[in-house]
């Protein structure tokens, strides 16, 4: 490819950062280099013979490259590699470890919506969607990707500071026998048993039960 003798140090820490299967390749500049370094990126499907260049990440000076589209089939595994150029010099390619989108992605917390009656609160949880090419593209919930997906739900009585935890498989929960006119705060987390994955807890969503009309 007409490249010069490659004496530049390699890019460092080349790795995928993945959230909801939005798979971004990240790396650090070669040791001892300041500004002006350019990069190019290639990727390959594990078990398939060829490396594929990513044109949108050719001669770039940023240290990341979005490979979500190229790695969207989560039944496959991938490698990616980065090469650096500076002042006519180049580096060797620096590769990631094998990337498995199914097990190596992080999952966002679920969306939480709450409503209340006098003595109960109802909670509806929505799992995040898998990354998709465009907003018009077909939405795939992570629930479809991980059939064993469950929700851990925390409910806090703001007055007594008492907290309950629930683990549910479906996405709705009604918490009965609560105190009227009292504020409760709900937070939820996604938990997948195999492969073992879990999101952080969502922020708290607080709501008050209705006042007791008979009181």
């Amino acid at each position: 490819s007409g490249e010069l003798y490659c004496s530049l140090p390699k890019p460092r820490n080349v790795h995928f950062e993945s959230i909801n299967m939005k798979n971004i390749l990240h790396w650090s500049a070669p040791e001892g280099t300041g500004d002006g370094v350019l990069y190019k990126v290639k990727y390959s499907v594990y078990g398939v013979g060829k490396w594929i260049r990513k044109p949108e990440c050719r001669n770039i000076n940023r240290t990341w490259c979005d490979l979500s589209s190229e790695t969207s089939d989560y039944e496959e595994q991938y490698y990616a590699s980065v090469k650096a150029f500076l002042n006519g010099m180049c580096s060797d390619w620096m590769e990631t470890t094998r990337f498995n989108p199914l097990t190596d992605t992080k999952i966002d917390p679920p969306m939480v919506s709450v409503s209340s009656t006098e003595k109960s609160i109802s909670i509806i949880l929505t799992a995040p969607e898998k990354w998709k090419r465009s907003s018009e593209g077909e939405s795939v919930s992570l629930l479809q990707v991980y059939p064993g997906l469950q929700y851990n739900v925390s409910v806090l009585n703001k007055k007594t500071k008492k907290r309950w935890f629930f683990s549910i498989s479906n996405n709705t929960l009604v918490v009965p026998w609560l105190e009227p006119g009292t504020a409760y705060c709900v937070s939820a987390q996604i938990h997948v048993t195999t492969p073992l994955l879990h999101s952080g807890f969502s922020k708290e969503y607080c709501i008050a039960t209705l006042k007791d009309k008979t009181a």
Partner: peptide, 18 residues
Amino acid sequence: IQARDPVRTLSILSYPHS
């Protein structure tokens, strides 16, 4: 273990079909 496997172009389980 995967670092000990330098052969990217062949898969035991997935070649030619998943």
